[in-house]
């Protein structure tokens, strides 16, 4: 029976679709944490992206403009996050929590104020699904790879670009340097604060894109708290992926598979979906404790940099 389920192409299509809203914020978190700023705010920033995507798509009647608006909103909220954590040097986890509570409140407040209590109107345009002829004709993997929402392909490109940027460009090296040893980076003439702002804001834009995928890609509406914990699973994916873009994608695919499988198994007797849903979190703890390939965070992650010290 198990092999029968695994041989369904729809399962693999769903895996990729479910991995996307995890991979984008996980990539975003990677950028932020590589620059030395612990980021648990992905959950809240996803909500900001999801809401403002729908809102701007509604205002302009264009899903792409909605996407742009959402990314700007994501950048702005991360600018606030960066200002409080980098410039003022506040506790990054506390502020991240604050962003999550603030964003959940703000988006639902705006939803109710602007659209009333009935939710967003059904006429909101959504981002298209693509049908890539070459890919979709391949047997078995075709439907999984060839017929996905456009954001899925953008995500795959961004992961590759992110990997190249972080590990093969000068700027990427500098970004990682301020996350490992800001004192040395400062001495070498790098601007620690600017690079951390860059990491946090790129992180926010990517997380926001994850939210847009939920609201304008999978659905064409916004619902309160629609990120439903994905920002936290993304955090797990980032750690399980050892703070690298490719690793994060791999972990997101694994967790996406767990999600897709739990949807498939719903209603199947003797298999509990709740237990399957625990897997990402359990695996992350194992990875952190070194039982499944030790994952170590950037050395200066979480420590505000004060040049006077």
């Amino acid at each position: 029976m198990f092999w029968h389920i695994l041989s369904q192409p729809e399962l693999w299509a769903a895996t990729l679709a479910m991995a996307t809203p995890l991979a984008l914020p996980a990539l975003g978190g990677t950028f932020s944490e590589r620059s030395g700023v612990t980021n648990i705010a992905m959950e809240g920033i996803m909500l900001i992206g999801a809401f403002f995507g729908v809102y701007f798509a509604y205002l302009t009647n264009n899903a792409w403009l909605g996407l742009v608006g959402a990314l700007v909103a994501g950048a702005l909220i991360s600018l606030i996050f960066a200002w409080i954590t980098v410039s003022i040097g506040a506790n990054q986890v506390v502020v991240g929590m604050g962003i999550n509570i603030f964003a959940a409140g703000l988006t639902t407040f705006m939803l109710n104020t602007i659209f009333g209590y009935g939710g967003t109107p059904p006429s909101i345009p959504h981002l298209p699904n693509l049908n890539i002829p070459g890919l979709s004709r391949i047997p078995f993997v075709g439907p999984a790879l060839g017929q996905q929402n456009v954001v899925v392909y953008i995500m795959l490109l961004l992961v590759l670009a992110g990997h190249y940027f972080l590990f093969h460009t000068n700027l990427g090296l500098r970004l990682r340097a301020v996350g490992e040893n800001p004192q040395a980076a400062d001495t070498a003439g790098l601007n620690v604060w600017n690079l951390r702002y860059l990491g946090v804001i790129i992180g926010g834009i990517l997380s926001s894109l994850g939210g847009v995928y939920l609201s304008l890609g999978l659905l064409n509406s916004f619902e309160p708290n629609m990120s439903s914990g994905r920002g936290y699973i993304a955090l797990a994916a980032m750690i399980f992926g050892k703070w690298t873009p490719l690793g994060s994608l791999g972990a997101a695919l694994l967790f996406g598979f767990a999600t897709a499988l739990s949807i498939y198994l719903k209603g199947t007797p003797h298999v509990s979906t709740n237990i399957v849903q625990m897997l990402p979190y359990a695996l992350t703890i194992l990875a952190l404790t070194g039982l499944v390939g030790r994952s170590t965070m950037p050395a200066a992650d979480g420590t505000p940099y004060d040049p006077r010290k």
């Binding site: 506040a90 506390v94 929590m97 603030f102 409140g105 703000l106 407040f109 109710n112």
Partner: peptide, 22 residues
């Protein structure tokens, strides 16, 4: 006034306390 305004207020309280240096 949607009840979620209280969450917005809570979020801002956290920012202000976290930014106590400010």
């Amino acid at each position: 006034v949607p009840a979620q305004l209280t969450d917005v207020v809570s979020g801002i309280i956290i920012f202000l306390i976290a930014a106590k240096k400010l």
